[in-house]
Simulated assay, not measured.
Amino acid sequence: MIPLYKPFMPETPLVNEILQSGSLTYGKYGREFESMLTGYFSTNNVIVTNTFNMAILVALTTLDIKFGDTVIVSPMACLASTQPLVSVGIKIQWADVDPQTGTLCPDSVRNLMHLGPKAIIHNHYCGHLGHIDAINSIGKEFGVPIIDDGIEAFGSEYRGLKLGNLGSDVTVFSFNPVRIPNTLDGGAIIFRDSVLFEKSKLIRDAGIDRKLFRDSIGEISADCDIKLVAHSATPMELNTYIGTQQMDNVDRLIEKQRKNAVIWDEKLNNNADINPIITADVFPNYWVYGALAKNKAETIKQFREAGFYASGVHINNNIYSVFNSKINLKGVNEFMNHFVALPCGWWFDNKLK
């Protein structure tokens, strides 16, 4: 059966050399990977972290979001996107989603702004970008930062620009094994504001200013004060080296997925029971091919019988007790009842039959 996800791993000839080098923490390859990402997104403010969990926490800490603060979040997200918030005592306020896309409903977000949220996290469900302009406009109107959650949306585009350069204050990406690119584990953060970017580099590294941390004989200097609550989130050289090798393949892999999506479009063109997710001016990375089926369970069964591992992917997070917010949301319910993901990855050649 053709799988829904599959890790990609390029040739990595220098792995053993790095492991034996004695230089395993953030260094040459970490900086090179960040430089490659900077070029890819056409932005100067990119940092890489050791995990996606840390990418979210570093972003939140940089924005000075603390225990007890409220953040507006979509229930239609991977748990990897939502659990980090409750781990530091942030209060999650679920917003409803557009049942046609699974992404934040602007009207629902606007109706929650009276709660005084410290941020809005805009998850782009399964690589399908949401209502970019509307959500960003709400953030600007109320002076609330927008965090684009691109956990599954690396390379997805809106009006010819990649997510990460679409006007939000912060964008986070995941590099775990089933993402493109993957670094075994890792994440990245893009800041629109250069001051926040500089602050984030301290927060990623336990609050340490490495230029001042050691004295003239290499001892830790008492003159280097630690002023920020921070994290230990710098990536390992092995992971970022893999990231550099991945970046040489990213465009090719995403192009293959988009070609597979065109074939799905043609296959499903006359199928009245299943409709592709389409958002104006959006060019997804097609991490999966998202569609809405009249009968979700039957559609999943039919595609699996045909050799394609169809799935609903995520479940709506507002059902979980850990978030202490089991709110009933109409758009979420409708989307969950119909969303089906089909394999669309680089690992197979989709063909018309």
Rank of each mutant, 00 (worst) to 15 (best):
G186Q: 03
Q93W: 00
S74D: 02
D223R: 09
P145W: 00
F348E: 06
S194G: 02
C224F: 09
N182T: 11
P284Y: 10
Q20P: 00
V195A: 14
H131I: 04
A261P: 02
E17H: 12
D223H: 11
T82V: 15
H124A: 12
I146E: 07
C126G: 12
N16A: 13
F197A: 08
T103F: 00
D98S: 10
V178Q: 08
G187M: 04
S194A: 11
D273M: 12
P284V: 07
S35Q: 13
I2G: 09
G218S: 06
K199F: 10
K267H: 08
F283V: 13
V71I: 10
D265G: 12
L19N: 15
R204F: 01
T279E: 05
Y158L: 01
T49G: 07
K201S: 07
N16G: 05
V88K: 12
W264P: 10
D96H: 08
L202A: 04
K118L: 06
K28H: 10
A291G: 11
C78W: 04
A95T: 00
I18K: 03
M247D: 08
T61Y: 08
V73G: 00
T12S: 09
S87V: 01
V282I: 15
L24R: 14
N45L: 04
M36A: 09
Y286H: 15
D169C: 09
T240H: 05
I47D: 06
E334M: 10
E266W: 02
E141I: 04
S156A: 15
Q257L: 02
